[in-house]
Design a binder for these strands. Structure first.
Length: 306
DNA sequence: CACTTGACCTGTCCGC
DNA sequence: TGCGGACAGGTCAAGT
């Protein structure tokens, strides 16, 4: 899927479009894609959209006349909040379609998406969320690895997948020393594989692991225990740089990823190594190599990365 | 226990 | 053009 920058892009866009909207109907087209009781969501109002690692959360509360009051309730009584949790895995998409765009507080937000309207649903649509103003959110997932689940907000922290997650790399508190500490938890594996473990750092996937290691000039085959403090510092900077750059570019679109408007991200136009086998290294002009590490394609420059 | 491989799915692309 | 195999943003469980 979508790694951190792609989910972050979806989160930011969805937030401006669906907060304050009331859910009217949920249609499940593939049972395996949906866990929990969808009927609990009908009539609820969206109060928040958030991201943790590669997961997307949409918080909803039972509607009480106005959405303003709902917002108040959410702050006072978190036990009332339900979360619609998404994991897009390899091929998930979240598409928003609203003919006039969502409205909140009297002004219109977002861009018109009438072009997507006729294309949705498509053959990979697995779940459809309909709002009372006619807007819709489509969860598409060609490979059916992704999922949507309904869970009480208060129960999320108890989920094993949440408890074990490593730190968020774009939070201010994420330092190179924390990165070092997390990576040394499994010091005998290859650095590229360690970066993919969500217990090490949350949100880094196959694209940004290769990119961050290139920026840090570290060979992806290195064993974690061989890294110096200077390496950890460069890697820390490389992770942040690649993730931030990708968010600026709206994420990476190799095959499936699109944002909520159905548009592709452009990070791969700037990528140093990912998906650039035999391409020219932007720094030393030698050929980019592709190898397999931990069963995943890994791209790097033999000259630049030591 | 630490680490690796296969499974989950559908679709596309590449070589013969 | 057709067919088989490898491969694709992720994560689990089972295997070594």
């Amino acid at each position: 899927m979508p790694e951190l920058p792609e989910v972050e892009t979806i989160k930011r866009q969805l937030k401006t479009r669906i907060i304050g909207l009331k859910l009217s109907k949920i249609t499940i087209l593939n049972q395996k894609s949906f866990q929990g009781d969808a009927t609990l969501l009908e009539g609820t109002v969206v109060v928040e959209v958030w991201r943790r690692a590669k997961m997307l959360g949409v918080d909803v509360v039972v509607s009480r006349q106005s959405s303003d009051l709902s917002l108040q309730i959410s702050k006072q009584n978190s036990s009332q909040i339900l979360t619609i949790l998404f994991h897009l895995k390899m091929s998930g998409q979240v598409i928003f379609v609203g003919k006039q765009g969502a409205k909140k507080g009297g002004f219109s937000l977002g861009h018109p998406t009438t072009d997507m309207f006729d294309e949705m649903p498509n053959k990979s649509t697995r779940v459809i969320f309909e709002f009372s103003n006619g807007s819709k959110v489509y969860f598409n997932d060609q490979r059916k690895f992704g999922w949507v689940k309904v869970i009480k907000r208060a129960e999320i922290e108890g989920l094993k997948t949440f408890q074990e997650l490593g730190p968020e790399p774009l939070e201010g508190s994420f330092s190179w020393k924390i990165l070092k500490e997390c990576l040394l938890k499994h010091k005998n594996i290859v650095i590229k594989v360690a970066l993919l473990d969500q217990k090490t750092i949350a949100g880094v996937g196959n694209i940004y692991a290769s990119e961050a290691l290139f920026i840090a000039k570290i060979d992806p085959r290195r064993i974690v225990s061989t890294l110096s403090d200077n390496d950890f510092q460069k890697l820390h900077a490389g992770i942040i740089e690649s993730l931030q750059k990708s968010i600026e570019e709206g994420g990476s679109s190799r095959t499936h990823y699109v944002n909520v408007e159905g548009k592709r991200g452009s990070y791969l136009d700037f990528a140093f190594v990912y998906n650039r086998k035999d391409g020219i290294c932007r720094i030393c002009r030698s050929r980019i190599k592709k190898i397999t590490l931990g069963g995943r394609g890994t791209f790097y420059c033999e000259l630049c990365q030591k």
